[in-house]
């Protein structure tokens, strides 16, 4: 007997959303829960039903893992900072200065995304390596020899800036494009200098795009691993590398899971902090 009550058939909205909810539960929430579970399992076990323990976390706090955490956060911070400073002028140009050329430039920024990240990074290796494209050419044609810049921490940062540039550039461009021309004109007309127009109107009104660019690149950069491996030559060990080692060579899934959980907590806390400081709705004046 079908009874109407607290278990009544839901409306068309929830019913239509159901497949997506199931997909997210199975494909997104379940693996995260599995990781969370693993992080409390005894070291070097492969069962999700063992006796829960905090041993993995204790191990991490007693080890030097915090160093790789710091490295990852530092690399991501430097990447975001450099990207912010380089992308803002480019975005500004794309929206306000370059005119018809903006389309061409946007395309040039987009096309590399169609090539695998690893392939592009190895491309840079060929470019910078001793006797490679750059140094080889200098040696052959000018007779000058330099040491290769590869396999240093700055090469890692370079790789990350290169890979994550579009993820800062495009949200920023959107943010700047959202500032209406008449609003800028109005501020200028009311006596503001170019700099005051920028500070009082353009920057705050393009903030949503900038914040989204910051978050996107930061989260991606904290999770980066290939740049440090390929261009950095493991001069730096980011936490993602530790996680990979734990899951592969070390065959210590619970330790890797605990590291992953800690990383998610740190990044999540930072993101929440930023979102609280820059409430997107308030910036847009929706509240």
């Amino acid at each position: 007997m079908a009874r109407r009550g607290s278990w009544a058939i839901p409306g068309p909205g929830p019913r239509a959303a159901l497949p997506l909810v199931l997909l997210l539960l199975v494909g997104f929430a379940a693996p995260l829960l599995a990781i969370l579970d693993y992080s409390f399992m005894p070291p070097r076990t492969f069962s999700l039903t063992g006796e829960p323990t905090l041993e993995n976390y204790v191990t991490i706090f007693q080890s030097t893992s915090y160093l790789s955490f710091l490295w990852s956060l530092a690399l991501a911070t430097v990447t975001v900072a450099v990207l912010a400073l380089t992308c803002y002028p480019i975005s500004y140009g794309l929206v306000r200065v370059f005119g018809r050329w903006a389309t061409v430039l946007t395309l040039l920024f987009t096309i590399p995304l169609f090539v695998s990240e690893n392939v592009r990074l190895y491309g840079w290796v060929l470019f910078f390596i001793k006797n490679g494209v750059l140094l080889g050419a200098l040696k052959t044609y000018l007779g000058i020899e330099f040491d290769s810049w590869l396999f240093t921490s700055s090469a890692t940062v370079f790789g990350m800036i290169y890979v994550y540039l579009p993820f800062m550039l495009f949200p920023m461009t959107l943010g700047i494009a959202m500032v209406p021309n008449e609003t800028r004109d109005a501020a200028f007309d009311l006596g503001a200098s170019r700099w005051q127009v920028f500070r009082e109107v353009e920057l705050p009104l393009s903030m949503p795009g900038i914040v989204i660019g910051f978050l996107l690149t930061f989260v991606l950069a904290v999770g980066a691993i290939a740049e440090a491996k390929v261009l950095g030559g493991q001069a730096i060990i980011p936490v993602t590398h530790d996680i990979e080692i734990a899951f592969t060579y070390a065959q210590n899934w619970p330790l890797g899971a605990a590291l992953s959980v800690l990383l998610m907590l740190v990044v999540g806390a930072l993101v929440l902090l930023v979102l609280r400081r820059f409430d997107l709705d308030t910036i847009l004046g929706r509240r």
Binding site: P180, E182, T183, D185, A186, A187, F188, D189, L190, G191, A192, S193, Q196, E200, V201, P204, L205, T282, I283, L284, G285
Partner: peptide, 30 residues
């Protein structure tokens, strides 16, 4: 910005991230 004239725009071009008071006081603050 150096002419003693001022415009009311078609879109009004108010500053959406500011209060009514801050909008009115903009030129005074400058």
């Amino acid at each position: 910005n150096r002419r003693p004239t001022c415009m009311v725009f078609q879109s009004l071009a108010l500053f959406p991230h500011r209060t009514v008071g801050e909008n009115i006081e903009f030129s005074l603050k400058i």
